[in-house]
Design a protein around this nucleic acid. Structure first.
Lengths: 219, 219
DNA sequence: CGCGGCATTGAACTGGGTCAACATAAGTGG
DNA sequence: CCACTTATGTTGACCCAGTTCAATGCCGCG
């Protein structure tokens, strides 16, 4: 179980905590395994705490009228559900695993307590929330100001940057839900980019052949 | 100048501060008047501090491809530009007055200092940022999941709630930019609602005749 | 009064969605 | 390892909500 403490220390928000504080978190947190496709929380639930993704992949999304819009996908250790947990209201969105995952749950009160004791955590949390606000601003821009080709182009660039490689796995389906498009449209845009000689595709792998052109198209 | 201190105390974020701290803020803050249509900051600027709206109305928006998407409109005392100011990076969006306004500027460092001295401010700020995250989540939902009629319906309800009155001023233009629609589409949806007997309109005033129907249409 | 900003209405256009058929990959169990 | 089933991706034909363009109306104000 030293394991868990070592893991917690990896998370920027918690990295500065003392051995003792981390042990405390370990004690109050609940670890759960979720199989792929399990709903972690939904908008009808009041937030009683927040979550830390330990392993796996989670999508945060809104749904309505039979459609769904992904707000964010988390695939590396981080926390989520923190905004609602902080206000104590209902979660504003859905959270669902898209891979088998392990997730910690931290009760709201315990965390507030912890933060009171160590204001540094609060500052860290502020920084993270500030970044998330900026991220959402970018998402709004993309959703309402860009056309399909530009969305797909910038999405490819973003993902390539994330894995720091010009070749990487790509799911048309997930891209579509993140970008507010249909899989058909994403597929068509990929074909277009392929025919323009900007990317290559084999199987579920994509490779960028002309980064500048992509940048151009991203606007 | 007691005036300014009394004003600062109205703002939830700062309301708990001591006389002395407020005086300090008063000293470090810069008050400026802006005429309608003045840009306060834009995405090419690094955030050196954040702003408090004292009087007037400000829109925060993204622009690209000749279009613009309003992210938020502030019309009552509150602060803005805080996310970027916190990370110290560029502002993610534009800010522009849509009425003659008075706005305070608080340098970044001063504020960080203040927060260090009084962690309670940090907690308040967290609460506000959490709410803003939730707000943006709602905006994303509206932009990508709702159709025009539903957007306009919920917009009308929201505004009526804000002024706590069934009759209120309404700008087709601004509504359009907030909702990610064109003024023509908004106008058409209003006509539709009028013909359904759900709202009434004369001049720039709108009146809700059937709130339940509106709620229904908002989904 | 006449001008400039805002709103309305109609007609035509279009980007992306929808539907359907098919292709390819990825599990799954015998 | 193969056969079968279930996800995921591709392509074409058609459709439609909302945009665009253009004309016209309305009203507040110098």
């Amino acid at each position: 179980m030293e394991d868990l403490i070592r893991f917690l220390r990896q998370i920027p928000l918690l990295s500065e905590l003392s051995e003792e504080q981390l042990t405390r978190i370990k004690e109050i947190s609940i670890v759960r395994s979720y199989t792929k496709g399990t709903v972690i929380f939904n908008p009808s639930q009041k937030a009683e705490g927040f979550y830390i993704l330990k392993k796996g992949k989670v999508k945060i999304y809104k749904s309505g009228r039979g459609k769904e819009q992904i707000i964010r996908i988390f695939s590396r250790p981080t926390f989520f559900g923190e905004a609602a947990s902080f206000t104590g209201e209902n979660f504003p969105a859905w959270a669902e695993t898209i891979e088998d995952s392990e997730i910690l749950f931290i009760p709201r009160m315990e965390f507030l307590e912890l933060m009171k004791r160590d204001p540094e955590i609060g500052m860290r949390l502020l920084a993270v929330m500030a970044q998330r606000l900026i991220y959402l601003t970018g998402l709004i821009e993309s959703l309402s100001l860009k056309d399909a080709l530009s969305k797909v182009s910038s999405y490819i660039l973003r993902n390539s940057k994330e894995v720091d490689n010009d070749e990487f796995k790509f799911s048309t389906n997930i891209a579509a839900m993140e970008l507010g498009l249909t899989k058909e449209t994403v597929s068509r845009m990929l074909s277009k980019l392929k025919s323009m000689g900007i990317i290559e595709k084999n199987g579920n792998l994509i490779r960028i052949k002309n980064k500048n052109a992509l940048l151009e198209l991203s606007e």
